[in-house]
């Protein structure tokens, strides 16, 4: 297990009396693209938010490079610079331009100077095809463009792991394509990614590990080929059959 970059051990999360995650256990190795699939309300997003410490796990551990980040010894802010996150609702800073969005983390948190941050931001904006829009405000660009900027913002911090929380769920079908294309190229580039998604084609074709969650537990996990073509659990079969019909 020493080669694991991120380990989730016996993670549970309760909101009041509602147990959202029960004893979640899985491992992410460098270069892994893990897709987390499952019905809405099965705890996928909460799991991702727990991994980024946006929610505090009720019990269990999250281990990053062999060190527990839930024990209070690791500064969560320093940890978050290494584990980036892309949200369903983009969450671009509305008071900044596209370029500033990608620079602010570098200058304020990583303490880079403005020129370096700018060059770095431009590199990633170029990569997601948003370089022409650096002077636009988030309210002036489309959803797909916002999400691509959000990905560039996360990349500009040069994280070791990138978490995607339903990155295409708020987009119309045409824009889903442009965002998935960016994610696919990231995966090809060897980025370690953890993707909560309803895009079954992406989970099947791009990821090398699929986790199916149902009612707060990991119901089934494995290689995409295994999970998609030969699901072992009844619940997985039912869930996937609904997608095949569409």
């Amino acid at each position: 297990m020493s080669d694991a970059i991120l380990e989730v051990r016996h993670l549970s999360k309760t909101f009041g009396s509602n147990q959202v995650l029960k004893d979640i256990d899985f491992t992410v190795r460098p270069g892994d693209v893990t897709s987390i699939i499952g019905a809405s309300g099965s705890g996928k997003s909460t799991l991702l938010r727990c991994i980024n410490l946006l929610e505090t796990p009720t019990s269990g551990e999250i281990i990053f490079h062999g060190e527990s980040v839930t024990g209070g010894k690791v500064n969560p802010n320093a940890y978050r610079t290494k584990v980036g996150m892309v949200f369903q609702s983009f969450n671009l800073f509305n008071n900044m331009t596209v370029l500033q969005n990608c620079m602010v983390g570098q200058t304020k948190v990583l303490k880079k100077n403005a020129q370096e941050a700018r060059a770095n931001a431009m590199k990633y904006l170029e990569q997601v095809g948003m370089a022409p829009y650096i002077n636009a405000k988030p309210r002036q660009i489309s959803g797909g463009q916002k999400q691509r900027v959000a990905i560039a913002r996360a990349l500009a911090m040069e994280p070791e792991v990138l978490l995607f929380d339903e990155p295409t769920s708020a987009l119309d079908p045409e824009m889903v394509g442009e965002v998935l294309e960016v994610m696919r190229s990231l995966a090809d580039g060897g980025m370690t990614m953890l993707v909560v998604t309803h895009e079954m084609a992406f989970a099947r074709d791009v990821s090398n590990h699929v986790v199916y969650m149902s009612e707060g537990v990991i119901c089934e996990e494995g290689a995409p080929k295994e999970v998609f073509s030969n699901p072992k659990q009844q619940r997985t079969r039912e869930f996937l059959s609904r997608f095949r019909e569409n």
Binding site: A78, G84, F87, V104, L110, A150, R153
Partner: peptide, 9 residues
């Protein structure tokens, strides 16, 4: 969330 996710305090 967005600010925290890039490590801001």
């Amino acid at each position: 969330d967005g600010a925290k996710a890039i490590g801001m305090n």
